[in-house]
């Protein structure tokens, strides 16, 4: 038998890398969020203080930003669910030989980065873009509908970017749902709507939950989409954090903003763990 020592050593470079480029900066981020930067100065005061957090939760600008980010994320989840469920159902039940192709197509935007698809959306959504152009040509509108630089535009971008995160967990869960469940329900007298409500949706719930969490977290922290499609007019938590870090150069405050986002996600994670445990106890 090969000793365990050498195998452990193989993990070491990876561990070192994670510790060095992720864990250490992360701890620094946590610490920095409790530091402060005196006004008009770029020097950091390392005495621990809640000043940054108090500022976030007392300044209406940041509170509105937080609210806007949350609403955009929740709306993205809802739209992704409504749009993604039929797609996932179609992939599982109807796609047949197209399945691999469609799945690859879904994954493509995820692996080619956020920037290219978002720039494509700029073309689509701009006042002289394809959507407005088509509507004008058809004579349906006189003036371009403002899509770029609005929350609707950002919402379209977020849904487009994160739809696969909803579809893939749904596909995974629907795959394990034999069609005979639906057929059994129908033979017992359930109409199609009742089949969905009583059988398909409850059994797909774990996938819905997983997809919702993934899309929510992705939308909450998304930077490229609100930055480019918002045209600097719509502030979300990610764009505000970037502003503070890169433009204002107030790193302690940027860290605190990042920590708030992290806290939201951790809270969500905790809530889910509790829900899951309750569900476990039930089965």
């Amino acid at each position: 038998m090969i000793g365990r020592g050498p195998a452990h050593l193989l993990v070491a470079p990876g561990l070192a890398l994670v510790a060095f480029v992720f864990l250490a900066p992360f701890l620094l981020l946590v610490a920095m969020s409790f530091w402060s930067q005196p006004e008009g100065s770029l020097l950091v005061d390392t005495t621990l203080t809640f000043k940054n957090y108090i500022r976030i939760f007392s300044d209406a600008y940041y509170l509105r930003g937080l609210g806007r980010t949350l609403w955009l994320s929740v709306a993205t989840v809802a739209l992704a669910l409504v749009l993604g469920f039929p797609v996932a159902f179609w992939i599982v039940r109807r796609a047949g030989r197209l399945r691999r192709f469609v799945t690859a197509l879904m994954l493509l935007p995820m692996v080619c980065g956020a920037l290219l698809p978002t720039l494509g959306l700029v073309n689509l959504l701009s006042p002289l873009g394809i959507i407005n152009g088509t509507l004008k040509t058809m004579g349906l509108i006189d003036r371009a509908i403002p899509l770029l630089g609005t929350q609707i535009g950002i919402l379209i971008g977020l849904v487009q970017a994160f739809l696969p995160l909803m579809v893939l967990p749904l596909v995974a869960v629907l795959d394990r749902l034999p069609p005979s469940f639906e057929e059994a329900a129908m033979s017992l007298g359930a109409r199609p709507a009742q089949v969905w409500q009583r059988v398909v949706l409850p059994l797909a719930a774990p996938g819905v939950l997983a997809g919702a969490v993934l899309v929510f977290c992705a939308a909450l922290t998304s930077f490229v989409t609100p930055q480019i499609l918002g045209q600097g007019k719509i502030a979300t938590f990610a764009t505000m954090t970037w502003q503070q870090a890169s433009l204002v150069l107030d790193w302690p405050f940027a860290s605190a903003l990042a920590m708030v986002m992290l806290g939201l996600m951790a809270g969500l994670g905790g809530l889910l763990a509790v829900l899951r445990r309750a569900n476990w106890a039930q089965t």
Partner: peptide
């Protein structure tokens, strides 16, 4: 759903 026919599946469902 309106046939009133009992169906027992191979995998029980």
């Amino acid at each position: 759903w309106e046939r009133d026919i009992g169906l027992v599946f191979q995998n029980y469902a």
